[in-house]
Amino acid sequence: MNDQISPTKLGFGILWPTFWTGLPIKLALAVLFLAFGIMHFETRIALAFLMLLASPVTVFALPTITMGLDSHIGEGAGIALLFLLAIPIDIWALGVAGRTFFLERLRREPPDGLGLTLWWKCALIGAIFLPILWVAESATTDAAISVAHTIFETGFLAGIPVPERISIELTIWGTVATGVLLVLLVIGFSLVGRAIRGMVRSARHAAENYEGLITRWDLMRVPGDQGLMLAALSGVAVLLSLLFWASLPVFTPHPHDCCTKPEVKAEPAFKPLETLNKDEKLITQLAARVELLVEQRAEAELEKEKSKKNGEAGKEEVKAPEATEPAPPAAVKP
């Protein structure tokens, strides 16, 4: 249909549907990793989403941007694992979107191994181009913000109220930053299109008419065994749901000051046999002590009676022996 398609249209036409084709699977994994607590995003969740969406081109660019340019989208081993798992998903998505584009838009036979070839080309271009885009865009935005500030710091604009000033400044630097970003994105899509163009040229023209091509393209998306496909999908969905609920924290990860729970120390485990033995020992000891006390008291009484008989009663006060006083609590502890 269109042999003279521009490289930008070619790159965009394949990458845009690819981004969205792989996203549902990647998102399911991302939610699972968030529930596991193996990755965290601070304020940059929108950037993280875009990076994940465009993973066919950001997969190798992200480490460069994170380590080389010291700008990270979040923390945790889950991020690296997620982008690693995104590779086979992206290869599959590029294959589906690429074959559709070749048949429907270009009316050419899609070559074998299209997904893998498209993936390494996109990933390579992304690895080189995206860090450049990142640096250029950051520098432009910083420069535009400082120029906008400078304009408003001049005397004749000093009286402008804060809300108006914020909106005008934002419009100025936002327009510049968006313009530069759009130009860079067009260049990026064009680079991908140029890398793919060779494959398009070498692909054979499809023999069928438009209706025939659409039917083929349509049937291509229908799985061979629909029952198996549905069963597999349902099984995966159930497994993911179970994993999700198993890993979901029961209480809020961010408790309010008003509701912080007091630290409860775990009580030692109750062992009935040991406790019974211990109590028996204690009772035996206490019984022996009581017996001793009774004996001592009886002896003292006897002594008292003897002294009375000897006619010394009332002259001398008989002091109770110290042993008859109750023992301190620590002493009775076994």
Partner: peptide, 15 residues
């Protein structure tokens, strides 16, 4: 499914 996953992710990100 995509919207459900997005809402879940946002609930984790900013409870």
């Amino acid at each position: 499914a995509v919207v459900f996953a997005c809402i879940c992710a946002l609930a984790f990100w900013e409870p």
